[in-house]
C-alpha cells in the first residue's frame, strides 16, 4: 500500500456517499424536470406562462433582496462592533449571535408567531402608541415574513463579515486616522472595501437561504402569501406533482445562480 492508496481509502466512504446520496438524486431530479409525462419542458412552460406563479417568483426575489439588504445593514455594524469590544463582551455578543443560529428555525418562527399575532406584544404596542389603527395586523403579511427571516439569517451575515474583519490589520485604520480621516471616512474608505469579501459572502448566503426558505414564510405569511419554496413544498405534499416540483426547484436554483454569478464576477473584478 502506498500513500495515495491510503488517502484514497480515507476519502472513499465520503465520496461514495456524496455521489450516491447527493449528486445522483440531484441529477435524477434535473432529468425528471425536463422529461415529464406531459412532454419535455412542459412544467417549465406551465410555470412561466402563469401570472400566478410569476407573481410568486417576483415576490420571492423581491423579499429575498430586501431581507439580504436589511441583514447587511445590521450585520456590518454589528460585526464591526464585535471586533472593537473587549474579549469578555465579545464572547457575550458571539453567544447572542450563535444561540439563535443554533436554535431550530421552527422554534424561532414560533416565537415570532406569538409576538406578531393579532393580540401579540408588537401589534398591541403599536396600537397603544397610536401609530396604527384598530384593525392593524402583522401576521400573514409580507412584513411578518421579512421580520422573521431577518432574525433567522442575520447570524449568517454577521459571522461572515466578522470572519473577514478579524483578519484586517488594525494599523490600517490607525494610519487612516493619523492621516486625517474622520471616523466615518475611515469606515468608508478603509474598513468597508476590505470587508467586501465578507459582505459578498454573507449576502450570497442570505440571499440563497431566504430564496429557498419555506418554513418561516409559510408560518408567518400564511397560505395566501406564497413564496417559491412554499409552492414547491405544496407541489410535493398537497398535490403530488413531482415533475412540476422538480421544475420549480430548477427555476429556484437557476434564479439564485442568475443573481449570484454576476455578483461574484462584479466584486471579483473590483478586487483585482
Amino acid at each position: 500500500m502506498n500513500d495515495r492508496m491510503e488517502n484514497l481509502l480515507l476519502a472513499l466512504p465520503g465520496l461514495l456517499l456524496l455521489v450516491l446520496a447527493f449528486f445522483l438524486p440531484i441529477g435524477q431530479m434535473l432529468v425528471l424536470s425536463v422529461t415529464g409525462p406531459e412532454g419535455p419542458l412542459a412544467p417549465f412552460v406551465r410555470f412561466l406562462s402563469d401570472p400566478y406563479y410569476l407573481g410568486i417568483l417576483w415576490r420571492t426575489v423581491r423579499l429575498s433582496l430586501l431581507i439580504t439588504l436589511i441583514c447587511g445593514a445590521i450585520g456590518f455594524p454589528l460585526a464591526y462592533i464585535m471586533t472593537k469590544v473587549g474579549p469578555r463582551l465579545r464572547l457575550w455578543l458571539v453567544v447572542m449571535v450563535i444561540l439563535p443560529l443554533m436554535t431550530s428555525v421552527v422554534v424561532r418562527t414560533f416565537g415570532w408567531m406569538v409576538l406578531l399575532s393579532r393580540s401579540g406584544l408588537i401589534p398591541e404596542m403599536l396600537r397603544d402608541m397610536g401609530l396604527v389603527g384598530r384593525n392593524f395586523a402583522l401576521m400573514q403579511t409580507e412584513t411578518a415574513i421579512v421580520i422573521g427571516m431577518v432574525q433567522v439569517l442575520l447570524p449568517f451575515m454577521a459571522l461572515s463579515i466578522l470572519g473577514v474583519l478579524t483578519r484586517i490589520d488594525g494599523r490600517l485604520e490607525e494610519a487612516a486616522r493619523t492621516m486625517g480621516c474622520s471616523f466615518l471616512q475611515t469606515i468608508r474608505t478603509v474598513v468597508l472595501p476590505l470587508a467586501l469579501p465578507g459582505i459578498v459572502a454573507g449576502s450570497l448566503l442570505c440571499f440563497t437561504l431566504s430564496a429557498s426558505a419555506f418554513i418561516t414564510p409559510n408560518l408567518l405569511g400564511g397560505t395566501r402569501i406564497q413564496v417559491l419554496a412554499a409552492s414547491i413544498y405544496k407541489s410535493v405534499t398537497a398535490t403530488p406533482d413531482w415533475p412540476f416540483a422538480a421544475a420549480q426547484a430548477v427555476i429556484l436554483f437557476a434564479g439564485i445562480a442568475l443573481v449570484l454569478v454576476p455578483y461574484i464576477k462584479m466584486t471579483g473584478a473590483r478586487n483585482g
Binding site: A11, L18, P25, I26, A229, Y233, A249, F253
Partner: peptide, 26 residues
C-alpha cells in the same frame, strides 16, 4: 475534492430534499 465535500453547503436544502425524496421513492 475539497470543493466536492463542501458542495452540500451551497445547494439550498429544499432542492436536495426533493431530489432525495424522488430518488429514494423510485
Amino acid at each position: 475534492l475539497a470543493t466536492v465535500f463542501l458542495s452540500p453547503l451551497v445547494l439550498p436544502t429544499i432542492i436536495y430534499a426533493i431530489g432525495m425524496l424522488m430518488f429514494w421513492s423510485s
